[in-house]
């Protein structure tokens, strides 16, 4: 996954022009009205937090909770980095919405044939070597894109080189690591970032799932054993009863 693509969002640089929002809406054919929160027609939004502008979008986790939760595998982490959604598989169970630690996926509640909607990091553009539309639209390079390694190096260089930055790259540990990173001069919790668990989310369910075969094997053996004893007891009881009645007869 050396060529995994990533995005860095530097909150100190954002001027709140919302060009990223507009570029995103344009490329998806959504109506241009700006929205306060992520929605089925806003895959990225710029929120105002005090005097800072905080852009929200899918974090594109390295080991995504949504992809592990989806029972039909409609959500997939691609080798290129983006977490993509195959609408043709989706059955509309909405477990991805429950599972996502960042509350990113949105559902088309108003439609009769509803699908899940979320940012796909412009997977098609990235495959052709182009940056995501939102990154390209940023006039001040508050958002930049590149390979995950380059982006992490750049983020580290910036926070080490300037003491105003909080010494944490949001996304480097969250949910076991993501492909979208934030750096900031204001503590992340004050900007509405969630304190996501530090381990990859699928680890939480993996141990329970791996118990399955053990339960089947051990449980199956145990129950079969108990059944054998039950049977044996019944046979013995039957034989004894027969003996008894034969004795009585003779």
């Amino acid at each position: 996954m050396a060529n995994t693509k990533a995005i860095l969002i530097d909150i100190t640089k954002c001027i709140g022009c919302r060009n990223c929002e507009q570029a995103c809406k344009q490329i998806h054919g959504f109506p241009p009205e700006t929205e306060a929160k992520l929605s089925t027609m806003a895959f990225t939004v710029v929120e105002e937090r005090g005097d800072r502008f905080v852009r929200r979008m899918c974090m594109h986790c390295q080991d995504p909770a949504c992809a592990s939760a989806c029972l039909v595998g409609a959500l997939q982490k691609t080798a290129n980095g983006p977490v993509i959604y195959d609408a043709s598989k989706c059955i509309g169970c909405r477990y991805c919405l429950v599972a996502c630690p960042f509350n990113v996926p949105k559902y088309e509640w108003t439609k009769l044939v509803p699908y899940v909607k979320k940012c796909d990091m412009c997977a098609a553009r990235q495959a052709q070597g182009q940056p995501p539309a939102c990154v390209e639209a940023c006039p001040v390079q508050a958002s930049i894109s590149g390979t995950r390694e380059e982006i992490l190096d750049e983020a580290e260089r910036r926070i080490l080189g300037d003491s105003k930055y909080v010494r944490h790259i949001y996304g480097s540990e969250e949910a076991g690591g993501t492909s979208v990173f934030f750096i900031s001069d204001v503590p992340f919790e004050k900007l509405g970032f969630v304190a996501a668990p530090k381990q990859p989310m699928p680890v939480l369910t993996a141990s329970a799932l791996s118990d399955g075969p053990t339960v089947i094997l051990v449980g199956g053996a145990l129950l079969s054993g108990v059944y054998w004893i039950t049977q044996r007891r019944a046979e013995v009881a039957l034989a004894e009863a027969r003996e008894k009645s034969e004795k009585e007869r003779s």
């Binding site: 592990s68 595998g73 169970c93 477990y95």
Partner: peptide
């Protein structure tokens, strides 16, 4: 369509 990492599956 199988995803054996999914509890829901």
């Amino acid at each position: 369509m199988w995803n054996r990492h999914s509890v829901l599956f």
